[in-house]
Simulated assay, not measured.
Amino acid sequence: MDAFLTSLFALALAEIGDRPQILCAALVIRYGKATPILWGLGLATALNCFISALGGSVVNQWISEEPLRLFYAISLIFAGAGMLAWRRPVDLLEKWTIGPFWTAFLGIFILQLGDKGQFILAATAARTDMWAFAAIGGWIGVMIACVPALVFQEKLAQMIPITRIRQFGGVIFLIIGGVMALSAWGIL
């Protein structure tokens, strides 16, 4: 249950105001219908979460507990830095003509490859034998962050303080990651 909740909350926070959320809103505005975008988001995220968690489970078998804790700490530090740093504009995939589902599925899947959420999820799964719970929690977390963008589109930015949430989340990830890293090195 720890892996499930950790990945759920971490990914929900990490994805607020991130590129997949922005792309979801833009695609709904472009195509005028949320259902195929929701299916594309759900499938792309499920596949990505499965790959990340499975990769983490492989790492679990190779590495002892202290390096795994450091791996998790580094994933949180990078996530925090990423949330605080400037991010490049999202490619809205306007030249893609493969329909709403495939544009959402492929666009979001590609955006999530190598993203902070993928590393957090892999690190979470690496610290447990229940990697499937980490994958499910991560999937739900991303969906919690992105589904409101499907419903509210650009109004979402007016309804919630996305910049403040990203700043708060970034600081929280940096603090937790820093403490965990110092602990893994035996400093704390």
Rank of each mutant, 00 (worst) to 15 (best):
M1L: 09
D2S: 09
F4E: 05
F4H: 08
L5K: 02
S7M: 07
S7F: 04
F9Y: 14
F9D: 07
F9R: 09
F9N: 09
F9M: 06
L13F: 07
A14E: 11
A14G: 11
E15R: 04
E15W: 01
G17L: 10
R19H: 06
P20K: 14
Q21N: 14
I22W: 14
L23G: 10
V28P: 00
G32S: 03
G32N: 02
K33T: 15
P36I: 13
I37L: 07
L38G: 02
W39V: 08
W39E: 03
L41F: 05
G42P: 00
G42H: 00
L43G: 09
L47T: 09
N48P: 00
C49W: 01
C49Y: 00
C49A: 10
F50K: 01
S52I: 00
S52C: 13
A53S: 13
L54M: 15
G56F: 01
S57W: 06
S57E: 02
V58T: 05
Q61H: 12
E65D: 09
E65V: 11
R69G: 06
L70W: 09
F71G: 07
Y72H: 06
Y72C: 05
S75I: 07
I77W: 13
I77S: 07
F78I: 07
G82I: 13
M83G: 09
M83A: 03
A85W: 14
A85H: 13
A85F: 13
A85M: 13
W86R: 13
R87V: 15
R87A: 13
R88M: 08
P89E: 15
D91S: 11
L92Y: 08
L92Q: 15
L92P: 06
L93Q: 13
E94H: 12
W96L: 15
G99P: 09
P100H: 10
P100G: 09
F101K: 09
F101G: 06
T103E: 12
A104L: 13
F105E: 10
F105K: 06
L106C: 05
L106Y: 04
I108W: 01
L111P: 03
Q112G: 07
Q112M: 12
Q112N: 15
Q112V: 09
Q112H: 08
L113N: 15
G114S: 02
D115L: 12
G117C: 01
G117W: 00
F119P: 03
F119W: 08
A122Y: 00
A122E: 00
T124Y: 07
A125Q: 04
R127Q: 14
T128H: 13
D129E: 06
D129H: 04
M130N: 05
M130K: 14
W131Q: 01
W131M: 02
F133V: 04
A134M: 00
A135K: 01
A135C: 03
G138E: 02
G141F: 00
M143Y: 00
I144L: 15
I144R: 01
A145V: 08
A145N: 11
V151E: 00
F152Q: 01
E154T: 11
E154S: 13
L156T: 15
L156E: 06
I160N: 08
I160S: 03
I162E: 10
T163V: 10
I165H: 04
I165K: 05
I165S: 09
Q167D: 12
G170H: 06
V171E: 11
I172E: 04
I172C: 11
L174E: 03
I175P: 10
I176Q: 08
I176M: 15
G177Y: 01
G177M: 01
M180H: 03
A181K: 11
A181P: 09
L182N: 12
S183K: 07
W185T: 07
I187A: 12
